[in-house]
Design a binder for these strands. Structure first.
Lengths: 142, 142
DNA sequence: TTTTGACTTAGAGTTAACTTTAAGTGGTAG
DNA sequence: CTACCACTTAAAGTTAACTCTAAGTCAAAA
């Protein structure tokens, strides 16, 4: 493993799947702190790509910029903020779980609707059975 | 069951959990077609609330306004568009499944991070074990 | 050496899906 | 009767998270 490589912003952008605009934006917001060479140009390391990777995982859970900034601030204050960071992540975790559950529930309805269309197309469902009626078959538990 | 009730826009809004603004907006976009009384005021029926309920389920899968409008247009053309409607919903279904999967994967990382903080707080994880190292324990498959 | 890429700041533009306002009219419930 | 709710159109405002531009300077790759 090469842990000492340095990337210019353009190359790093490709590496992590962001644009240079976004990288500078994140930097502005305090989420990333690239290094500078003697000419004042940014460079990024493998370490930085790991951090950005983690950031993107957090983003992917629905964590907002505001929350990410809070998180980064806490992180900068060292180990005494671990409990607070954990609390923050727990909040994001709960919300994310709820969103997934809700999304799944909606997807289930969509699945049934598609099945219903299937039935219509293959004439397994009579012409006059409504989707509402059809849905009742899956409602043992409500 | 009372299937003949009529609701004024304000009451209907409460019933379905939207604002009157949003109801008029959806109507404008062609997603809802309320009835009018002799004074030109909108009223909505139980039928309408079922339709809005379904709309909201579709929205909840990540279906966009544009897609919903397409869907409603197809619906208005009758049974000969069932295959097209099914195709549209399938596309939404696939995207929704992918998004859920991605979200779950990100949540898994978040879960591990929280566990890692837990370990730090209870000193089950040594002070110098990095999260990256910790994560490796779960990476049998990558 | 020419083109490509990086640097700066401040600010404008983008996107989706609402959300609200204005400004005036006119039913309706308590 | 009075407060409240509904009606209209057109347009502006909101939010988050980017995304891009301008305008000029400067370094580096082909």
């Amino acid at each position: 493993m090469d842990t000492t490589r340095e990337y210019k912003i353009g190359d790093f952008a490709k590496l992590v799947g962001l644009t240079t605009f976004t990288l500078r934006y994140y930097e502005n917001e305090g989420l990333i702190q690239p290094h500078r060479n003697r000419n004042g140009r940014r460079f990024y390391t493998t370490q930085d790509s790991r951090w950005v990777g983690f950031l993107l995982h957090l983003k992917g859970t629905g964590m907002t910029m505001t929350e990410l900034k809070q998180y980064v601030q806490l992180r900068a204050q060292g180990d005494q903020t671990i409990a607070q960071r954990k609390a923050l992540l727990r909040q994001v975790q709960t919300r994310c779980r709820n969103e997934i559950a809700e999304r799944k529930a909606n997807l289930t309805i969509l699945n049934h609707k598609i099945d219903w269309y299937d039935g219509k197309l293959t004439h397994e469902i009579s012409d006059d059975e409504s989707f509402a009626d059809y849905l009742k078959k899956f409602n043992e538990n409500s």
